[in-house]
Design a protein around this nucleic acid. Structure first.
Ligand SMILES: [Mn+2]
Ligand SMILES: [Mn+2]
Length: 305
DNA sequence: GTGTTAG
DNA sequence: CTAACACAACGCTTG
DNA sequence: CAAGCG
């Protein structure tokens, strides 16, 4: 099918500090479609729209039943909250991705489950959030520790900058676990890393109370209807940063996430390839890791002689 | 960003 | 005609 | 229940 769309306000500056326009943003997604679409397809999307750029008033949108081209696919999901169906946007092809970007969506935020199975996500992520005034090197240290822990557990994981101030570590999983099971599993791993880096990690969720210089290992975003900016998504910050896939060896204190943006990602792609290209070939079960974890953790019931 | 309403 | 206005979320934890 | 967070 031939999918037509009209794009407006192409010269509007979306990123005033760096000067990037809506046209620059659309061009980025046009060129990157093959790389980002695998992480958007078959999922409900939560829209965050910035029709006047990153300094303008932004808003969320879930229901998109109005103003769509006839070819645009939406997916109905029962909302417990509203007691009625919400028609969520989807992006299974480049035209849909560009249409949504044209609405002012700078970042693209998919659910962690495909719409054919609302209760079983096919990945889990650790969201590393530094508090204000934390060196990025602290995030890097914790990301490395987590990555190595996952390696020990024989789990495949994938790294990316969040595009904001943190790092995301994803585990592709077979869609057979619930969100709650995955959060519990992730929390156990987070605690073992916390124990080994107590000076760099906080579990304080209230921003104002979070000690400076520390990183929150957040697993709570792994929940029904709670999306996260996808790999290769642009983020609404001054330099138009991208949530950029990383090699493990890039986890060094010199890493500057804001330098990975809508201009520089193409050179990385040429240089390093699509670092998340095998993501969907690596969906895994967790039983073996759970067993390794329980063997490593001495049973509390065991008494000293 | 868009569609509708008020002036 | 032009401009103002209306409209566009919610899951989960903690206190 | 509301606040806080993302
Ligand atoms: Mn984060
Ligand atoms: Mn977070």
């Amino acid at each position: 099918m031939r999918k037509r769309l009209r794009l407006s306000n192409l010269n509007k500056v979306y990123f005033p500090e760096s000067g990037y326009t809506k046209r620059n943003l659309l061009a980025y997604y046009y060129r990157m479609a093959d790389f980002i679409l695998p992480f958007l397809r078959d999922r409900a999307l939560v829209l965050r729209r910035y029709p006047d750029g990153i300094k303008g008033q932004a808003f969320f949108q879930k229901d998109v039943r109005e103003g769509l081209p006839e070819w645009f696919k939406t997916v109905p999901v029962d909302s417990e909250h509203r007691g009625e169906v919400i028609q969520y946007a989807t992006a299974n092809d480049r035209a849909s991705l560009l249409f949504l970007t044209g609405l002012g969506c700078i970042d693209h935020n998919p659910w962690s489950n495909r719409y054919d199975d609302l209760d079983h996500p096919d990945y889990f992520f650790f969201d590393l959030d530094p508090s204000d005034g934390t060196e990025f090197s602290a995030v890097v240290t914790i990301a490395r520790a987590l990555y190595e822990k996952l390696e020990e557990l024989r789990l495949a994981s994938f790294l990316k900058t969040s595009g904001a101030t943190g790092i995301h570590i994803y585990l592709p999983v077979e869609p057979i676990y619930t969100y709650e099971q995955l959060r519990t599993f992730g929390e156990i791993i987070a605690r073992t890393v916390t124990a080994e880096h107590a000076n760099l990690v906080t579990s304080e969720r209230i921003v104002a109370k979070r000690p400076a210089g520390r990183v929150l290992i957040d697993v709570q975003q792994n929940a029904h209807g709670r999306p996260l900016a996808a790999a290769y998504s642009v983020r609404a910050f001054p330099q138009a940063p991208v949530s950029a896939p990383l090699l493990p060896r890039e986890l060094r204190p010199s890493l500057r996430p804001e330098t990975l943006n809508i201009e520089t990602v193409f050179a990385r792609l040429k240089d390093k390839g699509d670092l998340w290209g095998d993501f969907w070939k690596r969906r895994q079960r967790l039983e073996q890791a759970i067993e390794l974890l329980s063997n490593r953790m001495p049973s509390r019931t065991k008494k000293a002689p």
